[in-house]
Nucleic acid binder design. Structure first.
Length: 640
DNA sequence: CTTAGGG
DNA sequence: CCCTAAG
């Protein structure tokens, strides 16, 4: 059996409660009772009591009058707000309160029994709630529990209760409501809109109501108007509101549940529909209701959300899932059928995201901020204790509603999908203001360029042609002043980074807007030779080939670079060679710049000449081999 | 991506 | 070296 929590109606025992002092509230005390299968109540065990007490203590603070007031207002607004997008603000406050409540409830739920709580708590309790929403449901004790979970109370009811205890006015209302089962929820008094619950009273089969009546009922239940004309939906909503459960079935819903509850309960809670207060379950229920109304924007979808959440929560809490699930499915299906699917709006989505983000609680996450607000609140209440795990689970995904169906969507999906900026590499690149080969290497590596760096570094030896100029004895060793380093041997120079490079690098980094300018690298004699050789082999225009084969080690030389360089070489060869005799560099005599060795130029020239010719012939191909060799032979004598 | 060319 | 147009 389960221990059912029963709340005892007000009790005066509370004694020194604030409430009493205020006089406004009827002190309600929860009594923890174990419900036997036969329905008899049994005094709680000490353990049970203890467990509950803890919760109570925590709660006690919560219900301060002020808080309560806020809560109430909040709820009140809630109804109204729910409709409108802008009601967010109200929530924050509520949440706090809500949490508290939730905790309590949770606690209660967990324990599954109520214990005579401290006086401090006054929750109007009412009778045990046995809901018969579902016809299907079994009626065993278990059922009861389930139902409670599933069904339950509206958040409002919860609130109301609190408020009642706290506020005088409300109290009155509460008391009234309590007294008059018939009376509409006192809430009305609080709420701007005064729902007329009368319609709900009694056992009325929603099925028999007209849309209009249903709408009225809806209004009575949620305190707000609805334009929805979907009977099914309305029925559901109403039922849900009344019962607080998700399980409501579209058809065959009878208000009587509500009613029953009312009857049992001494007070009707002003809550939305006058939901019974089985506080315990109420917790979970509360959520539902809130959601319902809130979500509702007259949209069926809301209910979906809820249902899921509810189910979950209830399941979690009680471990009873079956009924709920079924009901859920039913609801969803029905709704889905009834209404068109609704796609989340961008805004909606955004809101959701935000909400989720905000809620550390995680769970809340669901649906939209706003919509969810109510839910959130409720959830928190419910969740805190037990839902932890759920939270963790939930976290990764967010629920969205699609066409009324809740769907878990990975948060990630919402995130921007853009691919990572490809530039980031560039940035890396920029870097090396300093020259560290390492950095470069790293960069290059990252870039995926040829892995040359290694070579580069080690072989970097080469001196910029310009500078070295002639030196080459066979290799380029010279170092010019410029480099600052002297490369003794080509091989060695590892650090041949020239100051220039550095400077340039920086420059480019700074200069280039987004793109950094490629690090300037002077062409070394060896590079030129390779280039020439490459051209000789593959022919001009085969830059990519040359680059691949001949410049494997120079990752920083692109085919474009080769092409450019070649162009420059050609130019040079033409100008220099011809006037060659001058021997001097035409344009500058600048010492720093060392002209490309004539030998090379010669080769270039030859190639240039050959190529074209060859090109014509297509001999280029064949040629290439020969030419290259030839070229080598000649000019290079020692180059390659 | 590779070439060609202009800047 | 960069940039762009054109395959």
């Amino acid at each position: 059996m389960e221990v059912e929590t029963l709340q005892d109606a007000e009790e005066t025992k509370n004694g020194g409660n604030d409430f009493e002092e205020n006089g406004s509230l009827d002190p309600v005390v929860y009594q923890l009772v174990r419900v036997e299968g036969d329905g008899t109540l049994v005094p709680p065990t000490e353990d049970e009591v203890l467990q509950i007490e803890q919760f109570l203590d925590d709660k006690v603070d919560l219900p301060s009058i002020d808080d309560v007031g806020n809560v109430e207002d909040f709820f009140t607004n809630d109804c109204m707000l729910l409709k409108e997008p802008d009601f967010e603000e109200g929530y924050s406050e509520l949440e706090t309160n809500g949490e508290i409540h939730t905790q309590q409830f949770d606690a209660d739920l967990e324990v599954d029994r109520l214990k005579p709580s401290d006086d401090s708590l006054d929750i109007p309790s009412k009778c045990t709630v046995v809901h018969d929403h579902k016809p299907d449901t079994e009626q065993g004790d278990n059922n009861i529990v389930h139902q409670d979970n599933a069904s339950t109370e509206t958040p409002k009811s919860t609130v109301l209760n609190d408020s009642c205890s706290a506020e005088k006015e409300k109290t009155d209302a509460c008391s009234r409501s309590v007294n008059n089962s018939s009376t509409g929820p006192s809430v009305s008094g609080v709420t701007s809109s005064v729902p007329d619950f009368s319609i709900l009273r009694g056992e009325v089969s929603l099925d028999n109501l007209t849309i209009r009546e249903l709408q009225e009922a809806f209004r009575a239940t949620f305190g707000r108007e609805t334009t929805v004309k979907d009977k099914l939906w309305l029925k559901r909503r109403i039922t849900m509101g009344l019962t607080n459960s998700c399980d409501v079935q579209s058809s065959g819903c009878v208000v009587k549940d509500y009613k029953i509850v009312c009857k049992d309960a001494k007070h009707e809670l002003p809550t939305i529909g006058g939901i019974p207060k089985a506080e315990v379950e109420a917790t979970s229920l509360v959520r539902y209701q809130v959601l319902g109304p809130g979500n509702e924007r007259d949209t069926p979808s809301c209910s979906y959300y809820r249902s899921e959440d509810q189910q979950r929560s209830s399941n979690r809490l009680k471990g009873v899932s079956t009924d709920n699930d079924e009901s859920e499915g039913t609801l969803q299906d029905e709704q889905g059928a009834a209404k068109r699917l609704r796609k989340p709006t961008k805004r909606y989505i955004e809101e959701l995201s935000d909400t989720e983000t905000l809620d550390s609680t995680g769970k809340l996450s669901s649906p939209g901020k706003r919509v969810a607000h109510g839910e959130v609140l409720l959830r928190q209440r419910v969740t805190p204790l037990q839902e932890v795990d759920s939270l963790s689970i939930t976290y990764p995904t967010r629920k969205d509603t699609f066409g009324g169906f809740s769907v878990h969507v990975p948060y990630a999906s919402r995130m921007r999908r853009g691919r990572p900026r490809r530039n980031f590499i560039s940035f890396l690149d920029d870097d090396p203001p300093v020259e560290c080969p390492e950095v470069q290497m790293a960069v290059e590596t990252m870039l995926g360029k040829d892995g040359e760096h290694v070579n580069h570094a080690s072989s970097a030896v080469e001196v910029p042609l310009t500078k070295n100029a002639e030196k080459k004895g066979g290799h380029i060793e010279t170092a010019e002043k410029k480099g600052g380093h002297i490369e003794t041997a080509d091989n060695k120079e590892i650090h041949s980074i020239e100051p220039e490079d550095i400077c340039r690098t920086d420059a480019k980094t700074k200069t280039k807007r987004g793109l950094k300018r490629k690090h300037h690298r002077a062409w070394t004699l060896s590079e030129v030779l390779k280039l020439v050789d490459g051209v000789a082999q593959f022919g001009p225009g085969k830059w990519s080939e040359i680059r691949r084969l001949s410049f494997a080690s120079y990752s920083y030389r692109t085919s474009v670079d080769l092409k450019d360089k070649w162009r420059n070489l050609l130019r040079a060869s033409q100008t220099q060679l011809s006037p060659e005799n001058d021997g001097v560099c035409p344009r500058k005599s600048n010492p720093s710049i060392i002209p490309i060795p004539p030998a090379i130029l010669l080769r270039v020239k030859e190639l240039a000449e050959l190529q074209p010719q060859a090109g014509n012939l297509a001999a280029a191909i064949k040629f290439s081999g020969q030419s290259s060799k030839a070229a080598q032979g000649r000019g290079s004598s020692g180059f390659l």
